[in-house]
Structure formats: C-alpha cells, structure tokens
C-alpha cells in the first residue's frame, strides 16, 4: 500500500542571529542552512496495517506524513501510495486518503460542522445514500448528536476533534494519516478517539499511520512502530520488540498486606520505588520467575503485577541513546 525508498526532504532555512545589526545585515547578505528534515528513510506498509510513527520533536515525522499526503515534494527518493505518486496530487489519489492534524482544522469555523460534511460530500462526490449511511454510523460511533448543528467556534476542543474526524471520514478514505489526533484532549476523550480509530481500521480495512506524543495512543493502536530521529529511521518493527530491545527488563509491582522496608525488598532486585505496602522492582526478563518466587516466599505479598516499563520511559531512553551516539560521532 505504501512504499517509501530513500526519501529525503531538505529545507533551506534563512539563519539570522537576534538583534538590530543582524537584521540590517540580513537585508544585504543572507545566510542559509540546510535542514535535513528527512534524510533517506525507507519502509513499506501493507494494506490495513496500523503503524505508529515515533520520534522526538523535529524528528521528521510530520514532514514524512505531509510528503505521503502529497503536501510536500520530496527532495529525492521515491514515494508511492496505493500506486500513486503523492506529489502529483491527482484527484483520484486525494479521494483515497485523508490527513487529520490535531492542530489544524478543516471545519468551517463560523458554520456548523454539518455544513463541512455536506461540502465534503459534494467535493468527494459521495452518493447521497452512502453519505447518509456513513454520517449515521459516524454520528453513532462518535456520539455527535446535536453537535453537528452548532457553529464550530462554539464547540469544545474534544467536540471539535470528534467532528474533525467525522469530516475527514465522509468519503471513507483507504489511507488515513493521523498527526497528533488526540493532542489537547482529556483522557476520556482520548479513549473515545482511539476506540473509534481502531474500529474504523477494523471495519474498513483502511491503512493507518499515526504520530502521537501520547504513548497510550501508540500502545492502543499500533502493533508496529517506525522510529525516526533527526530524519533517519532508527527502528521498524513490532512495538513489543522495540520495548524488549531498548529495555529488556520488566517492572514487577508487589502489593503487601502490611508495610515493608527498603532493606527487605532490595535483595530481590533493583528497586524503582518502595512506599508503604507497595514496591516496584526492575528485573531482567530472565530473572522474573525467580524474583517472583523469592518475593512470594519471603514477603507478605497479596498481589503482584508484571509488565513492561512505561512506553514513555522506553522512548525517552531510546532518544537519549540516539543523541549520545550522534554526539559521540560528532
């Protein structure tokens, strides 16, 4: 469905130090630097896959998504989405895709969302019965209700995002690019959006690429992740493989019937936290069984939980390792 080969996107950026003198000087002589937003990445995505695009700020995620959506022309390399070259922006291609940006909106600000839905129906040439059926489904799944008849400017951020998503799906895109779709939303609204996105993928078989700084979005939606840092691809594979690769240890959370001391817990492994009747240990993957056995035998354990370290920590470690590698190379 999506093939990207040696994609690069370089920007020429005007560089100017602060201050009046530098401003005047820049009138006569300008200095430019080349920013390598994307620097030779290659990957392929199959139809119906849900893929998370991860990376720190400025890694090149949004640039890649915009190139895939045909908004940016690549500096070099090849991009094909469902047989189309995105930068040609053929109408047939644009009918198959949609890019939802959490910080940008397509809803008409002063008119109710229903007007945008109707406009999109006309622009995407969706037959009226299909439109009515799809809007009914979207309305039920996203619980839109009367929201669609209130001016967009009077909707809350969460309400607006639900309507944005509905507007983006009026034409039933086969490929959905989601750039921070849950940004700024409260936790319950994030859950609603995630459920909806997963359901859309499962029922329509649409291919989905997601970027998000909320790791819960990625964990809930994307079995596969692609990690980009400074424009280069540093990982492409299953999320749990990434976690194991970066942090091969597990988190063991123990709850006790009575408070325990740090000294009682320390022999079991590296203590992350020990407060009252609860302790969290970091244990290497192959030691989990042994540690759990020792804990059950030596401490008043009433409950235990073994899980991977939080994804935020994994990503933070991954990015700091990349930074360190780059600094060493420099």
């Amino acid at each position: 469905m999506i093939e990207v080969r040696n994609l690069t996107k370089h920007y020429r950026v005007h560089k100017r130090p602060p201050g009046l003198a530098a401003a005047v000087k820049s009138l006569f002589k300008r200095e430019y630097t080349t920013v390598k937003a994307v620097d030779g990445i290659t990957f392929a995505i199959k139809p119906g896959e849900r893929v998370g695009f991860l990376g720190p700020n400025g890694a090149g995620k949004t640039t890649t998504l915009k190139t895939l959506a045909g908004l940016l022309h690549p500096s070099s390399g090849e991009v094909r989405v469902d047989g189309h070259v995105p930068q040609k922006r053929e109408a047939e291609y644009l009918k198959k895709i949609m890019l939802v940006m959490g910080q940008k909106q397509q809803l008409l600000w002063d008119l109710p969302p229903a007007e945008t839905f109707e406009l999109n129906r006309a622009i995407y040439d969706v037959p009226r019965p299909d439109f009515v059926r799809r809007m009914k489904e979207l309305s039920e799944l996203l619980e839109l209700g009367d929201l669609v008849n209130k001016p967009t400017r009077q909707l809350s951020l969460g309400e607006r995002m639900k309507c944005e998503l509905a507007a983006a799906l009026v034409h039933g895109p086969k490929v959905l690019f989601l750039d921070e779709p849950t940004i700024g939303l409260d936790v319950s609204m994030q859950v609603v959006m995630r459920d909806f996105i997963r359901r859309y993928n499962e029922t329509t078989g649409a291919t989905l690429i997601l970027t998000s700084h909320y790791m819960d979005d990625v964990a809930a939606l994307c079995p596969r992740v692609i990690v980009i840092d400074k424009g280069t691809l540093s990982f492409d594979g299953a999320l749990d493989v990434l976690v194991k690769q970066v942090r091969p240890d597990k988190r063991v959370t123990l709850r006790f019937s009575q408070p325990v001391t740090l000294e009682q817990v320390t022999p079991l492994g590296q203590v992350v936290r020990c407060e009252g009747a609860q302790a969290v240990l970091q244990v290497s993957h192959d030691q989990v069984n042994a540690v759990v056995g020792r804990a059950l035998a030596s401490l008043p354990v009433v409950d235990l939980n073994v899980e991977n370290p939080p994804l935020e920590e994994v990503m933070s470690e991954l990015f700091s390792r990349s930074r360190a590698t780059r600094e060493q190379a420099a």
Partner: peptide, 12 residues
C-alpha cells in the same frame, strides 16, 4: 498558519 494544507488535501 499552515492551514493551506487542508485546502490542498481536497480533490478540487
């Protein structure tokens, strides 16, 4: 504002 992107995404 970067909102030209939304206009460019439409097949018109």
């Amino acid at each position: 504002q970067g909102t030209l992107a939304m206009r460019l995404l439409r097949p018109i």
